[in-house]
Design a protein around this nucleic acid. Sequence first.
RNA 1: GCCGCCAUCGUCUAGUGGUUAGGACAUAUGAUUCUCAAUCAUAAAACCUGGGUUCAAUUCCCAGUGGCGGUACCA
Length: 517
Amino acid sequence: MKRSDFRVRAAPSPTGRVHTGNLRTFLNNYLFAKSTNGKYILRIEDTDQKRKVEGGIEAIVETLGLYNIHFDESPLAGGEYGPYIQSQRLDIYKKYAQQLIEKDCAYYCFCTEERLKSLRKKDERSTYDRHCRNLNEEEVKNNLDEKKPYIIRMKFLVEGATEFRDEIYGTIKVKNSEIDDQVLLKTDGYPTYHFAVVIDDHLMGITHVFRGREYLSQTPKNVFLYDSFGWERPKWIHTPHLLNPDGVGKLSKRKGAMSAVSYLRKGYLPDAVLNYLALCGWAPKGEIAKQDEIYSMDELVKLFSIDRMKKSNARYDETKLNYINSKHIRNMGVEKLADYVLHWGENFVLNTFIADKYDETEDWENELKKSVEKYLPLWKQNVDYFKKALSLEFERITYLGELPEVLNFFYDEKLTWTDEDWNTKNHNKEEIADVLEKVLPKLEGIFSNEEYNHEEWEKVVRGYADEINWKHGDLFLAIRSATTGRLKSPPLLESFEIMGWEKAKSFLQQAIDWLRK
RNA sequence: GCCGCCAUCGUCUAGUGGUUAGGACAUAUGAUUCUCAAUCAUAAAACCUGGGUUCAAUUCCCAGUGGCGGUACCA
């Protein structure tokens, strides 16, 4: 088989939610498909009617699109192997279930749920007792004639063991006595996962079943079906899980998983999120790995290979994600980043996605929305000014959501302070006010001369600090608080040059008033 | 309970039958600096335990322990 013949599918339930964990699974599938030049297919597994959700498919496709993950075939894009939604394939499953009965690989079961429940005692083997396995033809016929509700179960092997190969975990062997007579068709006529997945993967020509490790010990059920039909087994690739930061359990929303949309809204770059996620459980070969671990999507596609996948689970670590994101932001450069930020504000923060229907909006999202509503028009008003302001801050942030706040003094007319915004360790507020009042005309002197330079500015401030016997740092800090409203900011001179002296002067005066009030 | 899988610094990982076990994030210290960030330098930090096999085991085998997953008319 040529690599370009590879067909890989993602098979989510249409819940509309894409969280960190499943985003990673989508990514792994995508990287494998693209790196082998194969096809990437989306199939919706909506066989549980209780969990059916309206619009969930659109939400998933939309979300992945935001990350530049696209499908070659899907319910929305179509393809030769449709329908790509399992609830639209019920006749197909019924037909193949009948075939299995004819082959004596499956049987009707009329057991009630109550009966099955009573079989399941805690701490004991809970496999089905195979009560209906040996009903004779007449009994089955009678029950069917009586319209008794029924299900169809696979007639799994009783003795021996099932062996199969996983591309990551190697040869797996499970005793057949461990495997239940899995239900294939439910009372409502819908197939179960293990049945539908085999039928569809076969019919859709899936060559590589790339899925989470939770299916590993269940795979013999799939093997049995492939073998019963006489179909060629696909290659199985089970991938380790992403665990909670504390290492307990699969990553859950409660313990740090965000929705895929929320990452973007908060101001993580799509490539940065994917960069991080790809590195969980996978690493490029030592010799070709980049020291800083920063990879673009293109690079990931080039480097990806399943023999570099780990077998063990990885923990989710937000600090590493933050590092990767800030690197991606820096690497982008101001020009490109400025465009992206404007796009981000409009299309990620202010926009409402289909996917938002399926996740609660967090408080920070509402607050971010408010501040972007306020500042985005100002940013857009003068893109050149925005780029200059951004150039001072973009290397100081970890995600874009910080921008409205850190850029505020470039845009606000008035600043507000609290006592914590001043370094009052060495000097009290009155002293600071007096000094600011004295330093103001000196600064004005500098900026009124168009020929001023960096040395001159430093000389004036330091000189005055010496004069009044202040530490240089204390004076810079006082000016900083006055003109930016914070104790931490980009370098002052550069900030003044961008915001203009008039604005800085106005802040100084406001600060003096505030300190004295 | 039973079954399957896994096990390198706090975290993500590289790597090996003989290595000073490498990198990244995070942490600490220092340099630089008007603060922050960045940068540079330095430090601390790991082969789960016990048996084998072997001249030699972190590496191979077995057991234990721990973790994850499965054991549904969920996927």
